[in-house]
Design a protein around this nucleic acid. Structure first.
Lengths: 207, 207, 207, 207
DNA sequence: TATGAATGAGCGTTCATTCAT
DNA sequence: TATGAATGAACGCTCATTCAT
């Protein structure tokens, strides 16, 4: 019974924590780390500034945690797709499709993916980027394994290093999605994943 | 005679302007917009802070102009490559090579290319991104024309929309270069451009 | 019966009050008024912050009361010494000895005595200082009476106003004790009270 | 000529620095370190907050420098008194007189002398106290030398260790002055230095 | 009654910008 | 014209105090 009471309190705290992180994530995504003040986040989350500091020890910490959570959710979803018992072509198709779907549903949150080469003016950002990098690397390795497996079976040509191919696929989808966010009318992906896949599957020059 | 004096003055002013922009560009590239103060730029350029405000109306303006100049220089170099009287395959190969060379020579300045979807914390940055976007779009169209031309000649398969292909090529090179900057040992490009081209040229699955 | 219950409750409350004051006193003595937070005191006393505000209306109030209590205890001990039925020389000797002993036993609490001329940043401190001043004044008068009595008997020379002498003795002991706390090796008092008394008893220049 | 211009600038800067330090010193003396905000000091000195940070790198730094300057001025004046070519009795008399005069003229600034045993809540204060301690020690040694010299000549009795005597004299004057500040009517010193000296010179009990 | 989560005023500090020289 | 001293709004963060439970 006491355990239950404690658990309710904990759940309440967790809910508040999430609310703060959600407000922070939205604002950081919209205006960037330096463009958002703690006061602004507090207002958006309908808490006092002081309350933010109960849950997060600094602005940098809040930034990191709110951004990382979203990344983990996203990477997790993509990871699951690769575990399904289908052939390599289907896995890649599903991966591209899943990434597109996520973007369609979370258009406002995509800043996360920008984890390459921002500059080190703030250590919180650098740290976050490193963590995201690590997550991404792990996913890349899984995708590379799909390419490798397809090559072994003879389904895929050996047109390049599997890891490089994985990174290429990631980057193509990635940059198309960024373009699409800015001008959704102009780009076929994420609605039509085949446009992306064709670039990889069908060589521009065939022997 | 007076015209000449004025002109000399103007040239002098232009020289100073460039010096400030060079200092600004270096520092912004190293430490990011928020990581650099006007005082720092003034020190580096060996001018007084006040002087910076004679040439540029705000920090954001200086950021914009200094970054844009570098972009123009870079885009200009790539544009020239496409004008050379060679076949389509060679044009693409040269383009990829030129981009790589530029990176090898200007590793410290590459932040410029990050002109996709950064957030609107500062209107100057948004504006800059729009301008860079425009420049990039124009280059993309030229590259798309190369694909189109190759397809018409039958050199290239019609595996996708020429503009999409152009963007894909741009993005693959781009993200490989960013990866390479962080860990030069691990990536073949920019030293070996063929790794990139093979992905585009040789389909993973050939009919 | 009800009276007894109430009385027990009251005693319980008094016990809690003392616990808080003890914790507060220790911390204030160690780190000073501004160096201690209410949370810290609450933790040390094993109460919730809110509870502190049931017993004391503010931090300043708690500071005042906790410091005053210690002073009263100390002044009371010194006062008792003067009531013993011995001659004037012995009274002074015992007084100096008692003060020294108190310091030896309460080295960590001595900040109390610093009740001269601290600044008015917090009205609670000013008020406290006034109250301590009053206590001290009363003790000083008792000591002055010892001097006066000794002079009347002819044991003491009339080298100055008795109250001034009392204050001088107080100040000499006081400042030696403060010095001793910082560097116990270097000072003879409080171990050897005669060093202090000699200054008062034996004139530097004798007629 | 240029040297002169520079010197004028420097003098102007020095004047401003002194103005800030004067405002800071007054306020710190009145309300204590924690009782004064940088804004308050800026207002009092008729500068903007930012300007304070041009001259002093932090609040602690300003506190230290403003307090230390006053101490040095004061200690310097006392030191000079001891260098005059008069006998030991006169030296002590002059010292006590000089200290009294300083207090009469600078009644509002005396917090300086409180450099014993405040607590370490702020490192700036601790550091300052250490520095003041050192200055004071050096003066104490000079005064001790006067006692020693008087003892050698036979002018003074050997009633105690010279350094201890120096410290005693310092403390007696010191605490009388503090008392006097709070209630000038009641105390003879600083107007009449002999009251103090008699305590030291004429033993309460003479053999 | 006792709690401690929540508050928000107020702090020290920075830095883009201005303007008297 | 070029300067750089001076500005002050705005920031991240703390902690004495309150009040719903």
């Amino acid at each position: 019974m006491k355990g239950k009471r404690l658990s309710r309190k904990e759940r309440e705290r967790e809910r508040q924590r999430r609310e703060i992180m959600a407000a922070a994530h939205t604002l950081f995504s919209e205006k960037g780390y330096h463009g958002v003040s703690m006061q602004e986040i507090a207002d958006q989350a309908e808490f006092a500034v002081g309350t933010l500091y109960i849950f997060f020890k600094s602005k940098g910490d809040l930034y990191q945690e709110s951004m990382l959570e979203e990344t983990e959710k996203f990477m997790g979803q993509l990871g699951k797709v690769l575990d399904e018992p289908v052939d390599e072509v289907a896995k890649l198709r599903n991966l591209v499709r899943a990434k597109g779907t996520y973007f369609l549903n979370n258009a406002s949150k995509i800043r996360i993916f920008h984890a390459e080469l921002r500059q080190a003016s703030d250590s919180a950002i650098t740290e976050l980027d490193l963590k995201i990098q690590t997550k991404r690397l792990s996913l890349m390795k899984d995708v590379a394994a799909v390419f490798e497996s397809g090559m072994k079976k003879g389904t895929f040509q050996r047109i390049g290093d599997p890891y490089i191919l994985a990174k290429s696929l990631d980057n193509i989808t990635h940059s198309f999605l960024l373009s699409w966010i800015e001008d959704p009318e102009q780009y076929p992906y994420p609605e039509d994943p085949d446009v992306i896949l064709n670039i990889l599957f069908k060589g521009l020059i065939q022997d």
